[in-house]
Design a protein around this nucleic acid. Structure first.
Lengths: 101, 101
DNA sequence: ATGATATATCGGAATATATCGATATTTATA
DNA sequence: TATAAATATCGATATATTCCGATATATCAT
């Protein structure tokens, strides 16, 4: 992980909304009502939007930012875009920050 | 550690200048020229100021902020204020962030 | 093709952060 | 007590972040 990437990730995590979204994505089945579309373990933007109390555009921006940093990955399926945690990056970050700090 | 304190600490660490200062304070004897005052293992504001390339007031603000969060502790000795890492808080933070994330 | 739904992007407003110079405060010393 | 040195605080400015509504883009269904 480059210094720049580390910096981006810390900045991403400095926002409580983004940290909360990251939490929700830990156990999606507990946090979100299932979608009747056959992708129960995946979480699309509108589900997070519905839970967040923020505008759709704001939520979309937060998710896009976290994806740019590597914290999340996404895949489009039809009209939906599913976001999920990138556990490898998250783990790498926690190890790095523990060493660095 | 309260959620609010965790939030403050992450915000503090989101700044690269503050992270660098925290690094310098890991091994002060390697990073700073010793002061002829008998407190060689301590680091005062002006030493950090001299190394930073920033203004005295900016450095003072960064240090004050990190002290408020608990990342640093300080003690005044005469006209100098010595700052040092608060390893207990730093450790607690890394553990917490590892669990939380 | 048209309309509906999901997501992304744009532009702007409000708030937060970073930085500086000037000055106040604290302590030591002549 | 007056001066010097170290640190803290204040006020201002520049930049970054957060958020929204409006609109663009992509996909699906009719």
């Amino acid at each position: 992980m480059t210094d720049e990437n580390l910096d981006q990730i810390i900045k991403a995590l400095a926002n409580p909304v983004r940290r909360e979204i990251l939490q929700w994505l830990k156990q999606p089945e507990q946090e979100f009502t299932l979608q009747p579309n056959g992708f129960e373990q995946c979480v699309c933007v509108s589900q997070i939007f519905a839970k967040s109390g923020l505008s759709q555009s704001t939520v979309s921006s937060h998710l896009a930012l976290m994806q740019r940093t590597g914290l999340l990955s996404s895949q489009r399926r039809g009209q939906w875009v599913y976001y999920q945690r990138n556990e490898a990056v998250i783990r790498e970050f926690t190890e790095q920050i523990q060493q660095t700090l």
